[in-house]
Design a protein around this nucleic acid. Structure first.
Ligand SMILES: [Zn+2]
Ligand SMILES: [Zn+2]
Ligand SMILES: [Zn+2]
Ligand SMILES: [Zn+2]
Lengths: 140, 140
DNA sequence: TAAAAATTTGTTATATTATAACATTATACT
DNA sequence: AGTATAATGTTATAATATAACAAATTTTTA
């Protein structure tokens, strides 16, 4: 148990627990309706917890979906350096951990030589499972 | 004048014109209020035009800002392959055109060997102009 | 340990972003 | 000309996110 997980507040723990239980990214209002039995009543309570969890790298925001997913890479931190693959069909999201790609992104400089603090990369495609389903369907 | 620009409808042209006139990305409701004098009255008219313009690659959505920016690279098309640099301070956005980076992204395969149709990459940092301003401020 | 500072909470209201639904009109295709 | 496709105009509403403020809790520092 590291410092960060110890220092989470009650609402932050509730929200993180819910996100971690889900394989797919979850939406803020879905979180809200699912944690109301635990005493979280209103959007700001959810969004505050989300903001904090994002800040400390426990979760990430999937920008193209307005959704939130637990970090699958232990050492994610701010400023964020995140890479995801997103299925266009089922919308499942996987966090990609590819050292070579990370290095390419970390080393990237723009034409001015500007160094960037962080990045977010989202790849779009069809996941294996959805691709198989599509093949099934063409057989009939 | 290519086929695509010829085939734009009235509302699509109005919205594209406004976006292209702006150096910074613009928000949907800012577009709406700025084109009301041209006869666009309601959000769906703006969002429909945006959807079409995105589809044909004339504009891109800046996911982390819920904003829209004109394409600066002539051959952007669907499925999208976009790279931006975004200033954390002034929120200015530049579309990056870097063949080497493009190749890295195009060639990327996940662990399963899955090929991706498209991607969106957003780099975050401080632009040259904002960096200079910060240096100015520390001098006093 | 007591005061001060920082963080988190609870709450109400509201702002911002985006889409559903449906009738109508314009454009492109054969 | 007749059909299909795309775009328009409109009203209403859904979905996402933040402002503002008082109260309670936790952490820090003296
Ligand atoms: Zn992560
Ligand atoms: Zn899938
Ligand atoms: Zn482009
Ligand atoms: Zn800047």
């Amino acid at each position: 148990m590291d410092k960060k997980s110890k220092s989470l507040s009650k609402n932050q723990k509730i929200v993180l627990d819910f996100i971690q239980k889900n394989k797919k990214p979850v939406k803020a209002y879905s979180i809200l309706s699912n944690v109301q039995k635990k005493g979280i009543n209103a959007p700001p309570q959810v969004y505050r917890a989300l903001d904090k969890l994002i800040k400390i790298g426990k979760i990430h925001r999937v920008e193209s979906q307005n959704s939130f997913v637990a970090c699958k890479i232990s050492n994610c931190d701010t400023p964020h350096k995140t890479v995801f693959s997103i299925c266009n069909s089922c919308e499942i999201v996987s966090e990609i951990n590819d050292p070579k790609l990370f290095k390419n992104l970390k080393d990237f400089r723009d034409k001015d030589g500007t160094v960037f603090d962080g990045y977010n990369l989202e790849f779009f495609g069809t996941c294996k499972s959805c691709k198989n389903k599509q093949i099934e369907n063409t057989k009939h």
